[in-house]
Design a protein around this nucleic acid. Structure first.
Lengths: 240, 240
DNA sequence: CGCGCGCTTGACTAACTTCAAAGATGGTGG
DNA sequence: CCACCATCTTTGAAGTTAGTCAAGCGCGCG
């Protein structure tokens, strides 16, 4: 759903600027915060806590115009639904990740993959706060940069790779975000992986089989795999 | 190419913070800038001017570790090269766009599509400046948000769409960025479009033919097309 | 213990890529 | 000014690969 009026374009700087914080003196000013810890604590107060059970919708299709979230626990998937019933999983958000910072992400549907807890913010408010607090400002730009990096890698994954390579890149991303040594918990179902890497669940299953056969992947448990990281990297980079 | 040490993670806030700009008093402080215009002018001074002829490399494969750019004129493509000779065009940058703000983008190769002029910055320096100048800070976060939105749309394009739909989404993106009414200049060659939307040049050509046949697209000139925007939108959204 | 859901595997089909060649286009030099 | 050449684009035919349809398996839950 397009919302042409709401863009990511440069907004006018209004409200709380650093040198001029007199307007809202009755509350604790973000300008007064002198450390990351204080900033974090202050943010907690600004946020609403949200809990969602697996497969529940957290925010729907742009209905939450101005809300963004920070994942505290669990995994969230951001999904684009198409008229023909197809889905595109655009992103998985893990603990610590923000989502909804950009317009395009707010137009997606956010669903809980696992049991999830979140903090919910108003984007505009967050932006205002970050004008006068460099700690928050850096946290937001950092989140956005990570977001761009991930999306860039996702694009590379989807563009010109065969199923094995796609799965390899996906598992490498997963490893980077939630890996413990060479062990990675794979909590999302095959259908979510399929809609993330642009394949059908059947093809994903075959790709898993192929990685097992090549001894790049070994199942430790239903939702836990051990990876040969160098082999995985070679495959992911198209040198496997 | 992975550079594990250089991440998009939250950096420590050091150097120029708003309330404490005493350290570097001999030069004009960004904190002193009171408007977007002054900020823009100041930035110009901070930047190196770069010119590149069509198909010339602007920055290679992460060699420019800390440099980012702002396009002044022309079109830039950000490309990922694979061992097998394949390419993925990750992004086209148009006048006004920044690129290289995130780690992943700096690891790509930037090439001129057309004759190009750019401003070149040091990312860290830009970050520092933005700590004390909310105008610049907003410009950067705005650029990053736009970046995320575009990448998100690109992912949706690549995931679950047939060639006609991919081309439709691409043309809609192009229209949004450089369109004039229902006319859009398409300056990049078919091979670049192909590597952007994850198809071969032949398939792109066939997709163009299909759009022409459906009267969604009409050639005005070699590099200029007129679009039926509503038809294009339907097709792009999978309702065509 | 049995049912349901998700994952896996197999056979067939459809779609995109590949390979090949002809048709435009623009730039250069005679 | 026109002809020629290199490059890019379009079109056609054959080949691969992932999608589709269908059935079987296994794990977890009631």
């Amino acid at each position: 759903m397009m919302v042409p009026d709401e863009t990511d374009a440069l907004p006018k700087v209004v409200g709380c600027l650093c040198p001029d914080p007199r307007a809202m003196r009755e509350e604790v000013m973000p300008c007064d915060l002198r450390s990351e810890e204080e900033t974090r604590a202050f943010l907690q107060q600004q946020a609403a806590r949200v809990i969602a059970a697996p497969d529940r919708v957290i925010s729907q299709d742009g209905a939450a115009e101005r809300r963004c979230f920070r994942v505290t626990e669990g995994i969230v998937r951001l999904v684009q639904f198409y008229a023909d019933g197809n889905r595109q999983v655009t992103r998985f958000a893990f603990p610590g990740d923000y989502f909804g910072l950009s317009r395009a992400e707010r137009e997606l549907t956010a669903e809980a993959v696992s049991q999830v807890t979140l903090l919910e913010f108003d984007v505009g408010r967050l932006q205002q706060l970050s004008d006068c607090n460099p700690y928050l400002a850096r946290q937001l730009t950092s989140a956005l940069r990570a977001n761009v990096s991930e999306a860039t890698e996702h694009v590379a994954l989807l563009g010109r790779k065969d199923p094995r390579e796609r799965l390899a890149v996906f598992l490498r991303m997963l490893h980077r975000q939630v890996g413990l040594g060479d062990v990675v918990p794979v909590r999302m179902p095959r259908t979510d992986i399929a809609d993330f890497i642009g394949l059908t669940p059947e093809t994903v299953s075959r790709a898993f089989a192929e990685l097992r056969r090549r001894n790049i992947l070994e199942d430790l448990d239903r939702h836990l795999v051990r990876l040969d990281l160098s082999g995985l990297g070679r495959l992911a980079d198209g040198r496997g």
